[in-house]
């Protein structure tokens, strides 16, 4: 099912990708579609790839600190 969803969403983005020359420079039609895809990958990568290892602890972290 997810492949069908992906195809439908990409087609939707292509259908509405019109060039509007204002604001953040439009380098090519569909700039914001690429921005959305890259942004999603960046945020997931930053959170799950970098921060998870640095700042995630077991749920009882603070209780464990107090018990020690």
């Amino acid at each position: 099912m997810s492949r069908a969803w992906i195809a439908a969403l990409v087609l939707l983005a292509i259908a509405v990708a019109v060039d509007v020359a204002r604001g953040v420079p439009y380098l090519f039609p569909g700039f914001w579609a690429a921005f959305g895809l890259a942004g999603a990958a960046l945020l997931i990568g930053l959170a799950k790839g970098v921060l998870k290892g640095l700042i995630q602890r077991p749920e009882d972290h603070y209780e464990a600190l107090r018990r020690d």
Partner: peptide, 15 residues
């Protein structure tokens, strides 16, 4: 157009 592009491909990124 901007918002639909942005959100449609965010959904794709999530999938």
């Amino acid at each position: 157009s901007t918002v639909v592009q942005l959100l449609a491909l965010t959904a794709v990124g999530f999938w």
